[in-house]
Design a protein around this nucleic acid. Structure first.
Length: 594
RNA sequence: UGCUCGAUGGUGUAAUGGUAGCACAAGCGACUCUGACUCGCUUAGUCUAGGUUCGAUCCCUAGUCGGGCAGCCA
């Protein structure tokens, strides 16, 4: 069982230029309801950049009582895989869970488009699953291959598309360049009948890859390159992860996407800025088909750039393939699955997405904004525990061997009515080696020769003696515990400057702890010629820590604050009973850092 | 040098013709049985030049700078 953390308050709904547009459409009653979609290609794992898009699309659906369809944009069989389909479903569900689940658009398993007539015009509609449908799944663009094919045939019949025999290289050459108009393909004037026949033979698999294509007949001299008779279908003798060997031709993005949006009744098709130039084509295709229902429209926003982070499926794939990280879900990865494994709560990701806003400005977001969202959430929700990362032994000489003093430790001081648990104080305890200095720097609050410090929840101790071995290394610190400073004792109110964390040497568990740091040493790894040269050599440090005994039974998915140290979660993948593994989600802020 | 999108403190984002605000970061201070949290204070901004207007971050013109586009990828 996992414990989900959605307890932190949700931020107020943001406003931005896209939400303003939607609000305008609602005011003028332009659509029956608001339907958005999140349409990843299943060729990699989702990352923090996708989370921004998910939060936007689901947020708009949620705020307007609408729906956001999850759709696999799987029109290129050679790059896609079911592994990715499965991970995307899991990641979207995780991110949306406890927030917009009710607005997540899935379809009945196996359902595809329904063909129907509206006012004498042919229509295709892909309905969402009715409430209570037992088996559901995401929408797939590949579900629409039949409908898409019919639309392509219709376009040919209308004289708006033609089969072109130009090779890929010649197609390129004929396209011209941004400042040079293209020239018409010699096949542009081919008859409708001939194109229809050839397209059918393409579909039947009669021609090799690249020998022919279906093209829209628009304008080879258009200043917009995407209007220079763009390809609609290509021949691809490849099996598809959903449709098997049925198809030998596959639609391209521009043709499939606008129509998939239309089939699903999408009202607002939101994508990133690199598609601005495609919008004219999006509109052209839908308008060329004379479709009976209201048409969707495309709106673009700037994708996320995050400091010290890579936000590109292609580059993340490279990290995985070159084994620079352990996998897509390596806790250092900015993938949703990596963040989840790291211990980042979904609510923190959502809060972050809301905080950064939606604009058309190509910005670089400071990773501190993300870290703040994580700490803010975890501070409110995480149970506190004691754990020592780099132990140094203390002997409390006035406690008898075997003597156990039970102390009440607060689980979360942020709670309105905080609960407590028992921790054992014994003769031998560990403290953090950072919390002792034989030669203390200025303004050092912690344990030092002749000094006093409070063991949190226990009592004040005084350092009497430093014991060293033959080589001069410190083996233990001998201290006296002032038990009158315990809660309820005569001197509880005694103030010392430093309060430190500790664990009993006899009441603790050893755990492998993985200390993660940022993966890159430069703010913009993507801007480097070779980002693999800027991997942070200290992005992972593995230590054996001494943790409070209760952490031996920690639940995966639950994030704890090790007091004064940071937030940690049990590794869902590699932690084993009796051999726990913890991941550091993030450190606490440290304003004393030397 | 075609088309296209953009530019507000260090960073990100509000203000759409009427007091430039918020968050993060940074600095200082208070509090503290977490050098955390919280609280208070401080530093710091409308790319440039014209124009319209009583009034311009906002509208117009020109410029400057930056992003994107020439896959049979999405």
């Amino acid at each position: 069982m996992t414990v989900e953390n959605n307890a932190a308050p949700a931020p107020a709904a943001p406003t931005d230029f896209i939400r303003d547009i939607v609000a305008g459409h609602i005011a003028e009653k332009r659509y029956d309801g608001i339907v958005t979609r999140f349409p990843p290609e299943p060729n990699g794992y989702l990352h923090i950049g996708h989370a921004k898009s998910i939060c936007l699309n689901f947020g708009i659906a949620l705020e307007n009582g609408g729906r956001c369809n999850l759709r696999m944009d799987d029109t290129n069989p050679t790059k896609e895989d079911v592994e990715y389909v499965d991970s995307i479903i899991a990641d979207v569900k995780w991110l949306v869970s406890g927030w917009a689940d009710a607005h997540l658009g899935f379809k009945a398993k196996g359902a595809t488009t329904a063909k129907r007539e509206i006012n004498g015009r042919t229509d295709y509609y892909a309905a969402p699953a009715a409430p209570g449908t037992p088996a559901v799944e995401p929408f797939f663009a590949s579900d629409y291959f039949d409908a898409l094919h019919a639309c392509a045939v219709e376009l040919i019949k209308r004289g708006k598309a033609y089969v072109c025999d130009l090779s890929p290289a010649d197609t390129d050459a004929y396209r011209g360049s941004p400042d040079q108009p293209g020239k018409d393909s010699p096949f542009r004037t081919r008859s409708v009948e001939e194109s229809l026949a050839l397209f059918e033979r393409m579909r039947a698999g009669e021609f090799p890859n690249g020998t022919r294509s279906l093209r829209a007949k628009i304008d080879m001299a258009s200043p917009n390159i995407w209007l220079r008779d763009p390809l609609l279908y290509r021949i691809r003798h490849a099996d598809h992860h959903q449709t098997g060997s049925k198809w030998r031709i596959y639609p391209l993005y521009d043709f499939a996407h606008c129509l998939s949006d239309y089939f699903e009744g999408i009202t607002h098709s939101i994508c990133t800025l690199e598609f601005v130039d495609h919008r004219a084509l999006y509109d052209w295709i839908l308008e060329a088909l004379d479709l009976p229902r209201p048409l969707p429209h495309q709106y673009e926003f700037a994708k996320l750039n995050l400091g010290y982070t890579l936000v590109s499926k292609r580059k993340l794939l490279q990290l995985v393939q070159e084994k620079i990280v352990s996998g897509w879900d390596d806790p250092r990865m900015p993938t949703i699955s990596g963040l989840r494994r790291r211990g980042v709560p979904a609510a923190a990701v959502r809060h972050f997405a809301y905080n950064i806003g939606i604009t058309k400005f190509d910005s670089l977001t400071d990773v501190a904004v993300f870290e703040h969202a994580i700490r803010e959430n975890l501070n409110a929700t995480a149970q506190r525990r004691l754990g020592v990362l780099r132990p140094i032994k203390i002997v409390l000489t006035n406690l008898a061997p075997g003597e156990v003093i039970e102390c009440d430790a607060t689980n979360n001081p942020q709670d309105e009515n905080p609960t407590t648990r028992k921790v054992a104080l014994t003769r031998e305890v560990f403290i953090e080696s950072d919390d002792f200095a034989e030669v203390p720097p200025p303004k050092y609050f912690r344990l030092k020769p002749g000094g006093e410090v409070r063991l949190k929840y226990a009592c004040i101790i005084k350092l009497d003696e430093i014991v060293k071995d033959a080589s001069g290394a410190i083996t233990e610190l001998r201290c006296t515990a002032d038990l009158t400073t315990r809660p309820g004792g005569a001197n509880v109110e005694k103030k010392v400057k430093g309060t430190i964390h500790w664990v009993s040497a006899s009441h603790c568990v050893d755990a492998e702890v993985r200390l993660y740091d940022r993966l890159f040493t430069v703010p913009e790894p993507a801007a480097q010629e070779d980002f693999t040269k800027f991997i942070n050599p200290r992005s992972l440090e593995v230590i054996t820590a001494k943790l409070e005994a209760s952490l031996g039974e920690a639940l995966p998915g639950q994030v704890f604050q090790l007091e004064r140290t940071g937030y940690f979660t049990q590794d869902a993948k590699e932690s084993r009973p009796g051999k726990p593994v913890f991941n550091r989600t993030i450190t606490l802020k440290d304003t004393w850092a030397k």
